[in-house]
């Protein structure tokens, strides 16, 4: 049977075709979502939601030629929807372009890359626990030493060192994206 025939049967409400598409594509949806979300159980939920929506909107499949391409638009929508709801709004730049070479070694040549990198760095910082952000900012913006940061925040020196280490290593992870 041709795929187009399967699609028409699904649009007509065939449970068997639904099961067939599910068994064939659900692993793909899950692995694709996991690659983008880095969260396996969230990806499994998204996969279930997507297929439920495919079923609920099966009538709109009549004009569809490739099920896989149709599925992509559904999956993309679900993932974007999740990220929109959990969106971090970048505040005023905490990290300036001139800070980048120090953090990543400075081989960002294209202007577009600098823009993306700056956005990602600031978003990553924004995603960190509040205490870690505070420690990092005091150290970066005011040039305080770890001991001074500890004094100013009332945190133990060990805690400050831990947060600084974590913040730097998480930001450096971004270096591998470019």
């Amino acid at each position: 049977m041709q795929e187009s025939e399967y699609i028409q049967r699904l649009a007509g409400g065939s449970y068997e075709v639904f099961d067939y598409f599910y068994l064939k594509y659900a692993p793909l949806v899950e692995s694709f979502s996991t690659a983008l979300l880095k969260d396996k159980s969230l990806s499994e939920d998204i996969c279930q939601d997507v297929f439920l929506r495919v079923w609920q909107r099966r009538k709109s499949l009549r004009g569809v030629r490739s099920f896989k391409a149709y599925l992509f638009t559904m999956v993309r929508h679900a993932i974007y929807d999740h990220y929109m709801r959990n969106r971090i709004v970048p505040k005023d730049s905490n990290i300036m372009p001139e800070d980048l070479p120090e953090l990543f070694g400075g081989d960002l040549s294209r202007e577009e890359d600098v823009r993306d990198m700056l956005l990602l760095v600031n978003l990553t910082l924004e995603a960190m626990p509040e205490q870690r952000q505070r420690v990092f900012r005091l150290s970066r913006h005011f040039g305080l030493s770890n001991a001074e940061v500890a004094e100013k925040t009332g945190l133990a020196l060990k805690t400050v060192e831990y947060h600084m280490g974590k913040a730097l290593s998480q930001l450096r992870e971004l270096g591998s994206l470019f």
């Binding site: 983008l36 959990n86 998480q170």
Partner: peptide, 17 residues
Amino acid sequence: AGDYPKEVADAFGSWLV
């Protein structure tokens, strides 16, 4: 293709949208 901590994944998602 990579393995990234939650903070980076959250930042990536916000960058993506």
